[in-house]
């Protein structure tokens, strides 16, 4: 049974595409056939983050309009078997997305894939609405920052009312929180909302915490999903989050300040 996952946040720039790419790569690495769709029509970015921007021939809108077959538009990832990318159109606008068109593409993908990840655009307009409409599960990406948390709360309201599951009265979309750009040292100083604070306000299950890391920009510079940077904090945190998503129990890491050599020598209790 195919699961449709929306990666959403309301606010822009919090890490939706980074997360979509990481989860798609992580699920495919775990042997699940996975397709990831960019819903940001007009401002596509997933192709760059996945490093396949020069292989885009047809896009999501071409498929919706019947100008290309789904198989022609899907880009096969060169690193991980079973991972496919459906890029957004860069030239059309959001009105090109239709409910029926999106449903048709998702139905066709469902015949072949275990997971379909919908990378939502920022905002709560058409693209974001359609990215969440057919979802079974939602990953709500939130930065520990006031406007991001407020926007996430708004998005949770929409997930509970504006999705197909909500309209049909089916079991609700499973919502899970992913806190990104987390800086434990600043949390320690009282300068940043803690993950407990964010979770208390949003009141949903915590899927993972991704620490602020230089690796994320480095990975996007080279078109590599950050989860493949297996030795970095951020990469490992995404691996944990994907494992939890698949039902594994994993301790949350990277929630406290990393101690330097001095701290390790004299800090006492740190393991």
């Amino acid at each position: 049974m195919t699961r449709i996952i929306v990666v959403t946040s309301g606010k822009g720039g919090v890490g939706k595409t980074t997360t979509s790419a990481a989860f798609a790569a992580g699920l495919a690495s775990a042997g699940r056939r996975t397709a990831v769709i960019d819903f940001d029509v007009g401002l596509r970015s997933l192709d760059l983050i996945m490093g396949c921007e020069r292989r885009v021939v047809y896009d999501f809108i071409n498929v919706i309009n019947g100008e290309a077959a789904l198989k022609q538009a899907l880009i096969k990832d060169k690193r991980i078997p079973g991972l496919f990318i459906l890029p957004a159109s860069q030239t059309r606008d959001k009105d090109a997305l239709t409910t029926e068109g999106v449903e048709r593409v998702l139905d066709e993908l469902s015949e072949e894939f275990d997971y379909i990840i919908c990378d939502s655009p920022a905002g709560i307009e058409r693209g974001a609405y359609l990215a969440m409409y057919f979802a079974d599960e939602a990953i709500v990406v939130t930065n520990p920052e006031v406007s991001s948390v407020r926007d996430s709360d708004r998005v949770l309201g929409l997930l509970a009312s504006k999705t197909r599951r909500a309209e049909r009265g089916e079991p609700s979309v499973r919502e899970r929180l992913l806190v990104t750009r987390y800086a434990p040292s600043r949390v320690g100083k009282g300068e940043m909302l803690s993950v407990e604070d964010v979770q208390e306000i949003l009141a949903i299950e915590l899927l993972g915490v991704i620490p602020e890391s230089t690796t994320v920009l480095n990975a996007s510079n080279s078109g590599m999903p950050v989860i493949l940077e297996a030795r970095s904090d951020a990469g490992q945190a995404y691996q944990d989050a994907v494992a939890r998503f698949l039902g594994e129990e994993r301790e949350h890491r990277f929630l406290t300040e990393k101690k330097g050599l001095f701290g390790r020598l004299f800090g006492g209790s740190s393991a």
Binding site: E145, R150, D153, G157, E191, L193, D197, E200
Partner: peptide, 22 residues
Amino acid sequence: ASSAARAKERLQIIVARERLQC
């Protein structure tokens, strides 16, 4: 109070209000 504590307090108020409105 730390700025994080202020952020939390402000969020609790605004989120409660907006949930009511929505």
